[in-house]
Design a protein around this nucleic acid. Structure first.
Lengths: 241, 241
DNA sequence: AAGTGGTCTAGACCACGCT
DNA sequence: GCGTGGTCTAGACCACTTG
């Protein structure tokens, strides 16, 4: 077994949750332990994970309950593929277009481009279990895109990483909007539907912008979930550095 | 001892880290277990917490090391007032209603309420520079609300903090929607306008849920912004596409 | 009183980084 | 080979909710 048992159990429970209705009660931890032939502590750890990811809620003295919000999760630097697989669904992608274009002023500013620099524009329709979820437009400075070749069509981040430009941090803006006609058609939602838009600018470890992404999600199938903590206050004594 | 031992140990190790220099190696888990007179699993859980909070780094086969350099979690736990002030605007609030109500099943789950427990519901219209931008509905378990009195009307978070229930962490869900008729009227936007909805559940330092908030923002006047970093795991693993 | 999750124990074995 | 963290066991007791 290369993958830890608690992760295997978490996956099995996660898919199990997919077949249950919202608010359904899961078997008690001891029963789960017996069912999956593991010790209570191991099952507990799997449930800890699922709770952290918003898949279940646990109420002391009551039980453990299913909680499918919509999709989502994103507190760290996550990709669409990670987000979807983490919810037990199968991600898919259809490339709609690849072009060299003159960037808009907003793209140019976000990527710190020179005045004459072009960008590679990659437009993709994203799926979860064969249903369209997201229309994404990505931009990469042309000087990086050349080194990418066709690997960009497979996985943009992996392609960038292979040429020494692994994303290390990102800025993220989230806002709501109404679908455009084109978005409505591609996403298969009626006109007037709301969308959740996430604009990210990725930076490598040296702080250079390497990619911008404008992702438009169906609001009825996607939400973000994250856990935040109060500012970390303590290095109480000194921070001379 | 009402507070769990692993939390006590985490606090002691945390303060211990404050007196050590960056990168200093902590004693092995077994030594820590002996020093704090706890079992290995309990110490492990304390270290899990500290690692998640960025206080220490653990490297398999090497050891556990102090890491008080970084901080700046993605988006910290902020209140509406802090948020608006930080954007250079002047916050304002109008209380629309205060009631004791039977919670919906969703509120009940999020706050881990007993089946018969009531909640204090506080509905507020929030302003930035005298313009309405957010309609917020907050819920507090009745057993806490009693100790609050009228201080809740001034500042909910400050009131909770004054009775020893300072928010320490929160879960945050963000999704998009279309205004209801009532929201449109209160926020002063036309029907069919998009909204950015943020549902937060606040927890005290012991992880007990103390408040839930459902905030509905005008999409034309509000977006979230955050900076995220790659997970601090090991350098070169995992995909980000 | 019964059932649930929350905590805790006192060990075990493994994979890994080192020398 | 040694020490480290990572996983896992098979129980135990407690606090809590519910009938």
């Amino acid at each position: 077994m290369t993958t830890p048992k608690y992760l295997q159990i978490a996956e099995r429970i996660r898919t199990e949750c997919g077949t249950l209705h919202e608010g359904a009660q899961l078997p008690a931890e001891q029963e789960l332990a017996a069912a999956y032939r593991a010790s209570p502590m191991t099952v507990r750890r799997a449930l800890d994970l699922l709770q952290e990811q918003g898949v279940v809620t646990r109420i002391p003295g009551r039980g453990t309950f299913v909680r499918h919000g919509i999709i989502s999760k994103s507190s760290a630097l996550t990709s669409f593929t990670e987000d979807i697989t983490m919810r037990g669904m199968t991600p898919g992608t259809r490339v709609l277009g690849v072009d060299e274009v003159t960037p808009t002023s907003e793209v140019s500013r976000d990527l710190s481009l020179g005045r004459t620099e072009l960008v590679l524009q990659l437009e993709r329709l994203r799926f979860a279990d064969d249903e369209p979820i997201c229309l994404e437009v990505a931009h990469v400075p042309q000087r990086y895109a050349k080194a990418l070749g066709d690997s960009a069509l497979v996985s943009l981040h992996r392609g960038l990483a292979s040429i020494g430009l692994a994303p290390d941090s990102a800025t993220r803006r989230v806002h709501a909007a109404i679908v455009t006609d084109r978005q409505a058609t591609l996403l298969g939602v009626p006109p007037g539907s709301p969308t959740l838009n996430i604009i990210q600018v990725f930076f490598d470890e040296r702080g250079r912008p390497i990619q911008r992404s404008n992702a438009c999600f169906r609001a009825d199938r996607y939400e973000t979930y994250s856990r935040v903590r109060r500012a970390e206050n303590h290095p109480p004594t000194e921070e001379t550095e």
